[in-house]
Design a protein around this nucleic acid. Sequence first.
DNA 1: ACCAAGATGACGATCTCG
DNA 2: CGAGATCGTCATCTTGGT
Length: 631
Amino acid sequence: MHGFVRNSVSNANLCDGLVQYRVLFVKLFMQAQDSADWNSDDDLDLQIDNYQSSPPSSPPAAVPSSDELFATLVDMGFSPENIARAIDEHGPNADTVVIIDAISKYTVNCEASSSKSKTIDHFLAMGFEEEKVIKAIHEHGEDNIEEIANALISSAAEESPKIKEEEDIEWSESDDEKYANFLSSDDEKVSDSSSENGNQLRSLMNMGFSELEASLAIERCGTGEDVSIADLADFICAAQIAREFDEFHADPEEQKPNVKKRRIEPRREPRSSAADDEPLRLPNPMIGFGVPNEPGLITQRSLPAMARMPPFFYYENVALAPKGVWDTISSHLYDVPPEFVDSKYICAAARKRGYVHNLPISGRYQVQPPPKYTISEAFPLTKKWWPEWDKRTKLNCILTVNASAQLTNRIRLALEPYGGEPPESKKKYVIEQCKKWNLVWVGKNKAAPLEPDEMETLLGFPRNHTRGGGMSRTERLKSLGNSFQVDTVAYHLSVLKPLFPYGINVLSLFTGIGGGEVALHRLQIPMKTVVSVEISAVNRNILKDFWEQTNQKGTLIEFADVQDLSNEKIVELMKQFGGFDLVIGGSPCNNLAGGNRVSRSGLEGDQSCLFYEYCRILDVVRETTKTMRRS
DNA sequence: ACCAAGATGACGATCTCG
DNA sequence: CGAGATCGTCATCTTGGT
């Protein structure tokens, strides 16, 4: 619980910035069709043939048909109504960019409004502290955006020249010199901003760009009437994307200086000596680099050089692990700081998880349709029975065990004697049980645990995903409790879509019921090859069924035990399929999870130690990828 | 009688946040 | 310092089939 409930509607200016961004993103998306991947697939043409036949999935290399354009735009998060309206107004053969520009205008217009919370959000999104924002609004009046901005900027400049967005990003030894240059040239630009300069700076920041990005853009593009804000915004977006591409396409060995400099932290508040001593802290709100419909989006970060090489990797585990665990995980995954996200900011159920990955973070978008955001939206039938004194709008984390039918009975018996309003003591008992066991109201005085298919929906899986395959109800509950929240993962993986228009090769460790695969499928990223490792036979069946039912054109190979997957075997598989583009998986959390009273022994526990197998395998894949690229 | 699978309840600690 | 949340494990009992 945090004291400040944020408005779920993004403010108009930030939205404007995002729309601008999307425009550029789609432009690049279209251009990226003929750009080469990391792997120079000899049989690329063959693969293309296989995948062009699959429905709307892979976008074509040439000019997209209007249907494909429509699908792509929906994926990008534009509303179907606006897309249809734009196509209608400009004709089906209009230039893509014209269509997108038109949609952008509708979107901006329809979201313009003001409210106190929006004003606050607006400045929170720019990285200012909530307390100061509220104070500034109080002093200058909420309509006086300019004055508030000025007050906040000067206040921020006084105490620390650094920019909030970069606060939690480690500027490690790996950072390019250009970043250092950005930083040093930046401060002066900000402090001596002339009025014209300052106005543009503020406008850009209003759009959600950081002070750093904005001032750099002004420096590069110049100021004055001939340079529009849109031009500057485009410049920033282009720079962001170019940087992402550069980071991954450049050979890290060539650009990395041989001398390993000690970690430099320019313009940082003095931190206690070595960064390793300082344990990782969970962000509040737990939204990582940002989630859809919430302010505070961060679109760039700097990865340690070691992490900036193929393949992409994506590791997941519980956020609330014992102290020090995430530091260890991060240190074994090339010092990439974890991205902690609570899925309650994306769907109707909480799921606090940490994700360590080397994916780009700009250009993320949500898969459609977005998940229901509240309990009542997710389960409309519960509204009728939901007592007024149960204030929950979100469910707690879906666990591996469910409440018993007896508990439902006990709750009914506790409430039945009272007509409308039960006494406080009864209410307290019932609410406590409802929260503890994640119960929903399915009848008069009847609070019942979630059914497996309801969990599937909450977690972003297709209905009946875990049905069949020899799975009992108990096994379904267990497997679902151990799974990804698909919408969250898909949001993170969405950046892969423009990078792999012809599909990707995936190594999926600890696959479970295939959360990663479902995410990629929902993103319509074709899976050329999936090598899946999953110990549970019924889970393997579920993935196999999914593979067949969704008519996957690619190859699925399943293994049972990661410990049996030797380094030689991995190399063999990579040679066979041309390497892996993505290594994804969440290792067992048994010995990390808070609910475990018996063996919460940390990363060295019997099951959770398999994390090191993830590391071993990822290392082999990275090394082999390097060798394969050389030859 | 026997077995396999499901159902149930007892079992705290360790975090974070306000 | 108190409130609240947490991809859990285990022994035992019940159920349903042969």
